[in-house]
């Protein structure tokens, strides 16, 4: 099942997106460039602030850690030097999560790709200048088998779980792996995830030509963004 992405669900934010993966749903809002408080101001580039709100309760150390992971990821996506002494603010609200109780380490890593994809889509929707296009994906290793985009059931009793994000040029932007694995397995997983994320960004037509392209998933990111551009330009054709 390919994940679903809806752009601009919020009216007041500069950019927003709802992203649903097999496991989580995250609502993201991006505002920027906006004024920054003196304390956080950077003289040569834009500051990035990420706020993560869990589905219930208030954030704690776990959310602070995830915020720092997403912040450094977004720093390599945004063209921060274009907005010195400004702030880009991203708020991520988790709206749905698996009903079964997962182990803490597994649940943390499983959430990261959804957060990253939602934040990226919100930045695109907000028209913020970006350096690269990115897709994040999740994989688990279960009984020696690599399962890409796992379901709740795959996460229970898995040996290791891996979250990775790749840019369109195939650069690895994020890697979070936990569990028990060796280098060979990790390389295998990273190759599988690279293929999956590339397929999500693949040009139409290129995908069909690729061997086994269909099973690697449809280019959902490209479809969603294309749809958005067509919608935004509808007034031109209409006139």
């Amino acid at each position: 099942m390919s994940p679903s992405l809806a752009l601009h669900p919020l009216v007041r934010a500069d950019g927003s997106a709802t992203f649903t993966s097999n496991l989580y749903t995250v609502l993201a809002a991006a505002n920027g460039p906006v004024e920054v408080s003196r304390r956080d101001e950077l003289p040569e580039e834009a500051a990035i602030e990420v706020n993560i709100r869990p589905s219930s309760g208030v954030g704690g150390p776990r959310e602070r850690w995830m915020e720092s992971v997403i912040t450094s990821l977004l720093r390599s996506l945004l063209l921060v030097h274009l907005h010195p002494r400004m702030l880009v603010q991203v708020t991520l609200q988790i709206t749905a999560e698996p009903s079964i109780k997962l182990k803490r380490g597994v649940a943390d890593v499983a959430l990261l790709p959804t957060l990253a994809n939602a934040a990226f889509a919100a930045l695109v929707d907000g028209g913020l200048p970006l350096e690269r296009t990115m897709v994040a994906a999740l994989a688990v290793v279960r009984e020696g088998e690599v399962v890409v985009e796992p379901t709740e059931k795959d996460l229970v009793g898995c040996q290791s779980v891996h979250a990775m994000a790749y840019s369109m040029k195939g650069e690895m932007l994020l890697t979070e792996s936990t569990g028990r694995f060796d280098l060979e397995l990790w390389e295998d997983v990273s190759e599988r995830l690279r293929e999956t994320t590339m397929a999500a960004m693949a040009k139409a037509g290129e995908d069909e030509g690729m061997e086994g392209g269909a099973e690697k998933g449809e280019p959902w990111l490209r479809h969603a963004l294309k749809e958005n551009v067509v919608k935004a330009n509808a007034w031109r054709e209409g006139g």
């Binding site: 997403i70 450094s72 690269r132 994020l174």
Partner: peptide
Amino acid sequence: MLRVEKSGGA
């Protein structure tokens, strides 16, 4: 291997 962590940068 128990953990691999990396975020940001290309």
